[in-house]
Design a protein around this nucleic acid. Structure first.
Lengths: 224, 224
DNA sequence: CACAAACCTTACAACAGTTGTAAGTGGTGT
DNA sequence: ACACCACTTACAACTGTTGTAAGGTTTGTG
């Protein structure tokens, strides 16, 4: 079932929206605390997030922007701020739709379902900034250049993107790619990182994988 | 450059919209005849279509629906009909966004750019009904079942989807897959169709490729 | 600066998956 | 009943991927 997470501090409106989606057969839930909204959201792996922008604490716009760097689910902004510049701001930061309160439940539902449908086809795609990776086929795309990675290289790239912007230890890479941290030649990881780097270089992505001596590998995509 | 095609019979509004997009650096053009709108649109391979629903001739809604069966570009409905049921209808038929006239150029632009951005990641995906095929990797998806096809099988599937709902002659298949209609063993096509069918069967798509004796092959996806 | 540890690269052979060939079976229309 | 078209399976050549081996380079430390 599709999970929809609602971030809205007005409890009455929140419950109404939740019920709208539950009646339509979705697994809808709302956040009740507005600390660490970003962590709470990503931890629940929603298929869609509905966001108010007037939240206690961090601005909804900032939240939207930082969620959209790693583009895993669509974001629908639902807010009382109804000026054009609010809408332009939201869309410019990557929001997928923008609706103003009060909003008819049917409209909200239709818009939400539209987004769910479109993002269905993107389910398997990991995104970090301008870089995207299809985790089924290991097709890597950067702007308009593409490359299809071999399985081992793809698995490494996948983990690096999932853990971004953290460093990934060699042990983690071993268990993700070979299923064990032990009994595997240390060198084989380096060989495959080397191959992966050569591949990335071929599409203009030199120096994207950086090694942290003694710690592991990390993705660097700031300058793109 | 991104091509945007505008389908709008009010010439003044049409020109205004065209200019809005041209100023923003897009290749924007409008249809001037409203016969065969669907053929005109698909022939121009737009990255986005902007559609009025009150057209002379065929209803914009019907048009939207039949365009969306093969989902190659996003559709933004721009119309004077501003009731909720119009919006629900449009979204239900697969339209990607719905705006009412008069519409501020900046809003239109922002919404359009949002769609272009999202569909960038779907550029390589062919869709016929519930079936989608990534033409770079030959990943075939039907609802939630996926299969990655080998290159030759993928090329055959690709052509069958592109030509849907027409029959594809063996000659066309030969030139698309092997680059020549001659000097290739007749049998090799049958072998690969056989392999493809076995693959499709594996994801619950038995009997999707039908042979028309003496004519060629055709895709049948009505019953899905 | 010398040394060791960590990291990187290239070449190669084993392997897996894909391709076309060959040969034979099954079905359809006249 | 016959010819023709369509289908299927087995097999060997080929292609791209993988891990191993061996040697080179960089980095931090005493």
């Amino acid at each position: 079932m599709r999970r929809i997470v609602i971030v809205e501090d007005d409890i009455y409106l929140r419950e109404e929206v939740i019920h709208t989606f539950q009646r339509a057969g979705y697994d809808a839930e709302g956040l009740v605390s507005f600390e660490n909204v970003e962590e709470q959201l990503t931890a629940r792996h929603p298929n869609l997030a509905i966001l108010d922008v007037n939240l206690p604490g961090k601005s909804g716009y900032e939240l939207c922007k930082s969620l959209k760097i790693r583009d895993s689910f669509p974001i629908l902004i639902l807010t009382a701020r109804d000026t054009l510049s609010d809408e332009l701001m939201a869309l410019g930061l990557g929001a997928d739709d923008f609706l103003t309160k009060p909003c008819h439940p049917d409209r909200l539902l239709a818009r939400a379902e539209r987004l769910l449908q479109t993002y269905d086809k993107l389910r398997s795609i990991l995104q970090i900034g301008p870089l995207s990776l299809d985790t089924d086929t290991y097709k890597l795309v950067c702007v308009d250049r593409i490359r299809i990675l071999a399985e081992t290289e793809g698995k490494i790239m996948k983990l690096l993107m999932e853990r971004y912007p953290d460093t990934v230890s060699k042990g983690e890479l071993f268990s993700a790619v070979w299923g064990t941290e032990e009994f595997v030649d240390e060198n084989i990881l380096q060989v495959n990182v080397s191959r992966l780097r050569k591949n990335l270089d071929g599409i203009g992505l030199g120096d994207v994988i950086r090694n942290i001596r003694g710690k592991g590998y990390i993705l660097e995509v700031d300058n793109l």
